[in-house]
Design a protein around this nucleic acid. Sequence first.
DNA 1: TGCCTATATAAGACCACGCATATATGCCCG
DNA 2: CGGGCATATATGCGTGGTCTTATATAGGCA
Lengths: 178, 178
Amino acid sequence: MSLTIALLGMLELSPLSGYDLNKRIEASVIHFWSADQSQIYRTLSRLVADGLAEVTVIAQDGKPDRREHRITPAGHAALDAALRAPLEPETPHESFLMRIFFAGALGIDGVRELLRARREEASRLLARLTTIEARDPGRPETIGQALRRATLRNGIVHAEAELAWLDETESVLVTASR
Amino acid sequence: MSLTIALLGMLELSPLSGYDLNKRIEASVIHFWSADQSQIYRTLSRLVADGLAEVTVIAQDGKPDRREHRITPAGHAALDAALRAPLEPETPHESFLMRIFFAGALGIDGVRELLRARREEASRLLARLTTIEARDPGRPETIGQALRRATLRNGIVHAEAELAWLDETESVLVTASR
DNA sequence: TGCCTATATAAGACCACGCATATATGCCCG
DNA sequence: CGGGCATATATGCGTGGTCTTATATAGGCA
């Protein structure tokens, strides 16, 4: 569903090939959605099969044909419906927390190593996101720009929350080990 | 992998049936891992096939046979290895942020509705987690207890971060719409 | 009486996703 | 000259997950 939104949302602005879509996803929504190339092509085929997009094949010399996808009125309607649909219930899958939950068996040093690795990951993520944030201009913003920036901000506040949790957890661990 | 850890981690404490495991997961790790009953049984079968657990069938009158699973030495080793393995790279899939990213097309009211729904969800989650947190005793704690509590705290700090982000985003939206 | 809940396991259908691989060409860099 | 990268699409295989349905019995509640 979300990848469908991504594809339709991008096709709304201009006709694109699967290749283009892959690049755009990597350039813009990668911080909250990771998409595999083959998955993009598969989903795109489904859009066409469902009549949500249409293909124009453009021959190119030296390069493979370019299959340009353009959104249909049905696709436009589907995007609008998907954006307005009730929020799907969350089914969390936090593999890191699963480890923490059972990490007691590792002893204090094993746990510390887990937390250290997690901190490194969270710091790296935060650095990456703040770099992107800094690169982009501030005011004046359209609603669209504000929202795209907001997804970035979401990643930042959660990365910061994770680091704060790590501080807290590490200090609790010191107490628990005494 | 994570469900494997959950099952082995719980079997480490005592032998359990699939039914027991399902109930325990619902009672203890549900705030960061949602597991389907059929998935639990399948994963459990795989543990047995891989020699990580052994089954004892216990006949009961009135109720179906109880297939009690007990962890093997290989299972113990596998759990330890899984807990110590390097953190798997994150592949984020935040469907809510996907909507926000493309929600500009909905206009300001549509976006506000999305944020409102999200806030309700986050508030409900926070309330649920803080209730559980309050119910459980404070000091003195073993490392295991501290870690289990830490997974709960993780959920709490992220729920709070989400609410803070919602405040921020709503106020940005007011500015952007002017 | 009839329905719901608890106990207990399992198979089938389906889906999204990730990883690997294939194909074909042109261009740049060392 | 060779290797790697950009352009461009597509299939196959496997994994993990969700939802649905089936089966069987006992006990409690209306």
